[in-house]
């Protein structure tokens, strides 16, 4: 089936089998391998991407379901080789160890900060509660999200006063 999907702001057309999962299309066909498959059983959130801005598990959505929609992966965060504030914050606060869960964590963070520029610790823990991390104990992930929130807010304030 022919599909047209905007992937990381780029219009992308393909002929996919209906049974093709979104994550396989992204990773194997488009070679966007930042999105990880952790469990393949809808349990871990490593495969999280945004579809029309909403975080979902791409191992549990068919590529054909994304037809006509916008898909954003971690590769879509950085601009002109410049790390996105969320990526910079995860680096700064050591929000990752092995890094396997990190793409999913960053995508739920992006969706959270879009809706709530000043999340409390509880808001953050609630937002990432569908994403499992086996390394960090979550503490530094929460700190990373807090730092990212502050950075993005400051950038927005600069932009409006400038």
């Amino acid at each position: 089936m022919d599909i047209n999907v905007t992937v990381n702001s780029k219009p992308t057309s393909a002929d996919v089998e209906p049974r093709r999962l979104l994550v396989h299309w992204l990773r194997d066909d488009l070679r966007l391998t930042a999105t990880h498959v952790g469990c393949d059983t809808t349990s871990c959130g490593a495969c999280t991407v945004l579809v029309d801005g909403t975080p979902i598990k791409s191992c549990t959505l068919l590529a054909v379901q994304a037809n006509g929609r916008e898909v954003t992966t971690v590769e879509g965060l950085a601009t002109n080789g410049q790390l996105h504030p969320i990526q910079a914050a995860f680096k700064e606060e050591h929000g990752l160890q092995c890094g396997f869960c990190t793409p999913g964590m960053m995508m739920v963070t992006a969706a959270l900060l879009e809706k709530n520029e000043d999340p409390s610790e509880e808001d953050i823990r609630w937002a990432i509660s569908g994403n499992i991390c086996r390394c960090t104990g979550y503490q530094n992930i929460v700190k990373s999200v807090e730092l990212a929130a502050g950075q993005i807010k400051a950038e927005r304030a600069d932009a409006t006063t400038a």
Binding site: P55, I56, K57, W126, A127, S129, G130, N131
Partner: peptide, 9 residues
Amino acid sequence: IADPLVRNL
């Protein structure tokens, strides 16, 4: 119900 990602769909 479930987790935030499953609840979105």
